[in-house]
Amino acid sequence: MSYETRPQTYDETIRILEKKDYRGIAEFILPSVKEADEISLEHTKLSVPDMREMDFLAKINMNKESFILHIEFETVYKSNAQMMKRMLRYYTYIKWHNDLPIYQVLMVLKKPVNVKNIKGSFESTVQGLEIMKYNYKVIKAYEIDKNEILSQKSIVFYPLRVFMKHDGETEKEHILECLSVVEKIEDTDYYFLTVECLKKIYQTSEYEEFVEEEIYMSSALYKEPYEKGREEGLQEGETKTLARTTIKFLIKKFGIIPDDLKESIQKLDATTLEIIIDNILEYESLDQIKKYIR
């Protein structure tokens, strides 16, 4: 069986876990939250084109204090500068939309290859004037003993145990142990998500033979793509069909058409393709088609 990852699958892992137990995520990341009077999820989508959707955002009411808890889970940590800019931009937009104190946490899942010291703060001073002090909490998942998750019964973090410290175990033993733990959970989505996390750190040959196909395939997440993926898949399928139809009609009308034009047509959106098809009888040359190519 092939365990090829759908592009959106891992990106949605945290959001699926969040739906299952968002309070459990918040309490593990910030233990004092166990005393919270109320925890409510906040909207994580930002109306900024080049910004990723935030992983976790919740409003906490605790001991007469209200604040926002923002958590990012990172597998590919490239540099301190890049991460700080991203976290600061998140902070700015959260603050803009919700004027409450913000507690930010970055959980680094995989140990960075080229960064020896992960930083979570910086200071800015100009001409002796202190402009800014900014910091967020950094949690290194790869330094957490995976058995700590079991002892705390933090089930929502079971799939992420694959990233954690496993002293005294070979990689094979580690993979088998992580899978055996979620195999016992009635909700097979946890097994599915554990396999998705394994794909992030191991080659297929290192884990595939240990996966119980019956359990993996019984998950609702395997049977049905995530909502976002399903919508994108339908849109992609519709667009591909329209592109093939457009090319077929153009060949019938003009004969052979250049390969570069075919490729450009295949990149057009569904609306544009429908316009071309609707007006196919009116075109007198391929140059009239090129006006739709940007």
Rank of each mutant, 00 (worst) to 15 (best):
M107W: 04
L109I: 00
K111R: 09
P112R: 02
N114C: 11
N114I: 06
K116A: 11
K116S: 14
N117R: 13
I118H: 05
I118L: 05
I118W: 03
K119I: 09
F122I: 01
F122M: 10
E123T: 12
E123P: 08
S124E: 12
T125Q: 15
Q127W: 12
L129M: 12
M132T: 14
M132F: 13
K133N: 15
K133W: 00
K133Y: 02
K133A: 07
Y134P: 15
N135H: 12
N135W: 03
Y136C: 07
K137I: 08
K137D: 12
I139S: 09
K140M: 03
A141R: 02
Y142R: 07
E143W: 05
E143N: 13
E143T: 15
I144V: 10
D145I: 03
K146I: 07
S151Y: 08
Q152Y: 12
S154T: 08
S154C: 07
I155R: 15
I155T: 15
I155V: 15
V156R: 06
F157C: 06
Y158M: 08
P159H: 00
R161L: 07
V162E: 03
V162C: 09
V162I: 04
M164C: 05
M164G: 06
M164E: 05
K165D: 05
H166W: 01
D167I: 01
G168A: 01
E169L: 14
E169I: 00
E169P: 08
T170F: 05
T170P: 14
E171W: 13
E173C: 04
E173G: 06
L176E: 09
E177A: 09
E177P: 08
C178T: 01
L179D: 04
S180M: 04
V181E: 14
E183D: 06
K184R: 05
I185S: 07
E186D: 13
D187K: 08
T188D: 05
Y190L: 07
Y190G: 08
Y191L: 02
L193Y: 00
L193Q: 02
V195S: 03
E196C: 13
C197Y: 00
C197F: 01
C197G: 09
L198S: 01
K199S: 01
K200Q: 15
I201S: 02
I201W: 01
I201K: 03
I201T: 05
Y202K: 10
Q203C: 07
Q203R: 13
S205Q: 14
S205R: 15
E206H: 10
E206T: 10
E209G: 11
E209N: 14
E212I: 06
E214C: 03
E214V: 02
I215E: 03
I215Q: 06
S218N: 02
S218C: 01
A220G: 13
A220K: 13
A220L: 06
L221K: 02
K223Q: 07
P225W: 00
G229T: 09
R230A: 14
E231I: 15
E232N: 14
E232T: 10
G233Q: 00
L234W: 05
Q235G: 13
Q235V: 08
G237Y: 08
E238M: 12
K240F: 11
L242C: 07
T245R: 14
I247M: 08
I247W: 04
